[in-house]
Amino acid sequence: MALKNYKELNTVHLDVLREIGNIGTGNAATSLSAMLQKSVNISVPKINVLGYGEVTELLGGPENMIVGILLSLTGDVKGMMMFLLEKDFAHTVINGLLGQSFKDFSEVDEMGMSALQEIGNIMAASYVNAIAQMSNLTIDISVPSIAIDMAGAILSVPAIYFGNISDEIIFIQDEFNSDTDNMVSHILLIPEVDSLQKIMKNLGVE
């Protein structure tokens, strides 16, 4: 079957994505734990194909402030990947790496931004490695770009990028727990449709 858009993903496809998500999240937790120097547990990630409106609501509404880290994928798989970190996650990262606290995002300085960007980079690499290894494809990721702003404004970027193909995206929700913190991050996986098909085919799913 030739996939035309994300809506055509069936339960087998979603199971494959879920498994990629599981492995990616596991890798990400390992990296996170190494960086923060504490143990990090994960819950089973939730994976859905959702419209932008639904994603915005899940992120606390269009005006909720959130960290967005955007990477583009090139090589065998083309597309985009975006990490969305909620405030408590960003706080744990900045506190763990730099020993700084903040109440409001406006207090995050350049050092804090680059710490977040680095986390995004490492987590993206964890996911991309999972996909690349499982599917035996070469995937390159770009240098991450970061923005802290309203969720709706950040989501407009992938929405526009895919505006002419699909109004839906693959949405992975991860929950990380350390002994003291509970952190939620979201990943938008937006491969171009033929790239997604390539992944599925290489994994033996038609």
Binding site: Y52, S156, A159
Partner: peptide
């Protein structure tokens, strides 16, 4: 007014669209 949407208002009403990014 949602994303990729439009609407009108008359009288005392007000229109709002949230979180314009590159839109």
């Amino acid at each position: 007014v949602g994303i990729a949407d439009l609407n009108i208002a008359k009288g005392e009403d007000c229109l709002v669209t949230y979180a314009l990014g590159s839109c």
